[in-house]
C-alpha cells in the first residue's frame, strides 16, 4: 500500500514540475518561433538545404551564431573563420553555465549534462530566476521541460521557415522581435522590486556592455558586461542563504 501511494505522490510531483516548466517555457517559445522561422528563411536563401539548416538548429541551438553562420556561408567565408566567430559569440554561455550549474550542485550529473547542453541566453535567464526548483527533489524535470520547450520551438520553427518561407508578415515578425527582450525585462523587474541592488547589478552590466561595444564585438561585450557586472554582486549581494 505504502509504495503505491508513494508512487502516486512521486508521479504527481513529477507532473507538477513538468507543467510548471512548460508554463515558464511558453514565453521562450513565443519569442523563438518567429526568430527561428526568420533563420530558416535566411539560411535557405544563403544556400543551405532544408536538411542542413534544420541540422544546424538541432546541433548548434544558438540563434545569433546560426544567423551569423548562414550569413558567412552565403558570403563564402572559410570554415575555420565561421567556427572561430561562433566560438567567440557563444563563449558567454560558459559563464552562464558555470553560474547555473553551481545552482544545480544537488542535481545528478546525468541531468546536469543534458541541461547544460540546452543552455541558451533565454533558457539560462528563465532557469536561473527560478532558483527554488533546484532544491526540490524533481527540480530537474522543471528545468528539463522548459529547456525542451525552447529547443523544440527552435528546431521546428527553423524547419518551418525553411519549408514555408516568409509566412509571418514583416510588421508582425518585427513586432515579435521585442518578445525575448520583454521576457528578460519581465524576469528582471520582479527581482529588482524585491531587492533593489539586483537592479544596480543589471545597470552596471548594461553600462559595461555599452562601453565595451565601442571597441569590441558584441559577443565579447556581453561577456565583459556579464562577468564584470556580476563582480559588482560580490559587494552588492548578501550572503547566500543556502
Amino acid at each position: 500500500m505504502d509504495t503505491v501511494s508513494e508512487n502516486k505522490k512521486n508521479y504527481f510531483s513529477s507532473m507538477l514540475m513538468i507543467k510548471r516548466g512548460l508554463a515558464v517555457g511558453f514565453p521562450i517559445m513565443l519569442g523563438y518561433i518567429p526568430i527561428a522561422i526568420t533563420y530558416g528563411v535566411l539560411a535557405k536563401q544563403a544556400g543551405l538545404s532544408l536538411m542542413e539548416l534544420t541540422l544546424m538548429s538541432v546541433l548548434v541551438f544558438a540563434g545569433a551564431s546560426q544567423f551569423m553562420g548562414a550569413n558567412m556561408i552565403a558570403l563564402g567565408a572559410g570554415a575555420v573563420e565561421i567556427i572561430i566567430a561562433t566560438f567567440v559569440l557563444n563563449f558567454r554561455h560558459f559563464v552562464m553555465s558555470l553560474s547555473f550549474m553551481n545552482r544545480l550542485r544537488e542535481v545528478d550529473l546525468k541531468w546536469k549534462f543534458p541541461l547544460s547542453l540546452g543552455l541558451t541566453d533565454e533558457t539560462f535567464a528563465v532557469s536561473s530566476l527560478h532558483t527554488n526548483e533546484a532544491k526540490e527533489e524533481k527540480g530537474f524535470l522543471f528545468y528539463g521541460a522548459l529547456t525542451l520547450t525552447a529547443y523544440l520551438s527552435w528546431v521546428i520553427g527553423s524547419f518551418l521557415g525553411g519549408v514555408l518561407g516568409k509566412v509571418i508578415p514583416e510588421t508582425l515578425s518585427q513586432s515579435m522581435g521585442i518578445a525575448l527582450y520583454a521576457m528578460f525585462i519581465g524576469l528582471l523587474v520582479p527581482s529588482v522590486k524585491k531587492e533593489l541592488r539586483v537592479g544596480l547589478i543589471a545597470v552596471i552590466a548594461m553600462l559595461i556592455n555599452v562601453i565595451c561595444l565601442q571597441f569590441m564585438s558584441s559577443g565579447w561585450a556581453i561577456v565583459a558586461g556579464t562577468v564584470l557586472g556580476g563582480l559588482s554582486g560580490v559587494f552588492l549581494l548578501k550572503e547566500e542563504r543556502r
Binding site: L98, L187, S191, A202, V210, S232, E240
Partner: peptide
C-alpha cells in the same frame, strides 16, 4: 558564489541593453 549568483542579473542587463534598441 556571490559572483556566480549575480551573473543572471548581470547577464539580463547586458542582454537587454542596448540590444532592445535594435529590433
Amino acid at each position: 558564489n556571490r559572483w556566480l549568483n549575480a551573473i543572471p542579473y548581470a547577464a539580463l542587463g547586458a542582454l537587454i541593453f542596448p540590444g532592445v534598441l535594435s529590433i
